[in-house]
Simulated assay, not measured.
Amino acid sequence: MDAVDTIAAELRALADPARAEQEKRYLKSDLEHIGVTVPAIRKLAVRAATGLTREKTLALTDRLWRRPVHECRMAAIEVLIRNAPLLKADDLAVAERMIRESHTWAYVDFLAIKVAGNLVLRHPPLATTLDLWAADANFWIRRTAILALIPDIRAGTGDLTRLAKYGDALIEEKEFFIRKALGWVLRELSKKDPDWVTTWVRDRTDRISGVTIREAVRHLPAYDRDALLTAYRS
Rank of each mutant, 00 (worst) to 15 (best):
L182A: 10
L182N: 05
L182Q: 06
G183L: 07
W184C: 01
V185H: 01
V185S: 01
V185P: 00
L186M: 11
L186S: 05
R187D: 06
E188W: 00
E188R: 01
L189C: 03
L189G: 03
L189T: 01
S190N: 02
S190V: 00
S190R: 03
K191Q: 01
K192R: 08
K192L: 04
D193K: 01
D193R: 01
P194E: 04
P194Y: 00
P194I: 01
D195F: 05
W196P: 05
W196L: 05
V197T: 04
V197I: 02
T198W: 02
T198N: 05
T198I: 03
T199Q: 13
W200N: 02
W200V: 03
W200Q: 04
W200R: 03
W200H: 07
V201C: 06
V201K: 04
V201A: 06
R202E: 12
D203Y: 04
D203M: 11
D206V: 08
D206P: 05
R207T: 09
R207S: 11
I208L: 09
G210M: 07
G210H: 11
V211M: 10
V211Q: 13
V211H: 08
V211Y: 09
T212G: 12
I213L: 15
I213W: 13
E215T: 03
E215N: 14
E215P: 04
A216H: 13
V217W: 10
V217D: 13
V217S: 13
R218C: 09
R218L: 11
R218I: 09
H219L: 11
H219E: 14
H219C: 07
L220P: 07
L220V: 11
A222P: 09
Y223A: 13
Y223H: 10
Y223F: 07
Y223I: 11
D224V: 05
R225S: 13
A227Y: 12
A227S: 15
A227Q: 15
L228M: 11
L229R: 09
L229A: 10
